[in-house]
Simulated scan of single mutants.
Amino acid sequence: MRQIKNFSSMTILIFSQDSSLFLYLSGSQDDCVYAATGSTFTVPLRYELKESDNLKWIKDTRIIFYRRQKLVITGKNDDVDSTGSLKLKQLTKDKSGRYGPEVTNEDGINVVGNLQSVHLCVLDRVQKPTVTTKTCTDNGHVNFTCSVGQNEKITWLMDGEMLEEKGKTLTRVAKDVLNANFSCNVSNLVSSEISLPVQQNCYKPTFPNELFGISIWVFIGGGAGTCHVLCNLCLQWTNQEQQQHHLQQNHLTKPL
Rank of each mutant, 00 (worst) to 15 (best):
L163I: 00
E152K: 00
S9L: 06
M162R: 12
L170H: 06
I73W: 03
L170T: 01
N179A: 10
Q200F: 05
K134W: 01
E48K: 14
I216Y: 09
N151C: 00
Q249P: 01
P208A: 02
G75C: 08
Q236Y: 11
I14V: 14
L13T: 15
L49C: 03
R2V: 09
I194D: 01
Q244F: 10
I73Y: 03
I109K: 14
L189Q: 14
L55S: 04
L86Q: 04
N209W: 00
T133P: 00
E165W: 00
Q90N: 15
S39L: 08
S28C: 08
H119W: 07
N209T: 07
E165V: 07
V148F: 01
L163M: 04
T137V: 01
W57N: 03
S9K: 11
S20I: 13
G38I: 03
G213S: 13
S147Y: 00
E165F: 00
E161A: 05
L23K: 10
Q17R: 13
S85A: 11
N114F: 04
V218S: 13
N239I: 14
K204V: 12
G100E: 08
T226L: 15
H119M: 05
F182G: 00
R98S: 07
D176F: 04
K87C: 08
T74P: 00
N77E: 15
T226K: 11
C136V: 06
Q69F: 07
V131P: 11
T61V: 02
Q69M: 15
K59Y: 01
N6Q: 10
S147F: 00
F65T: 04
L235W: 09
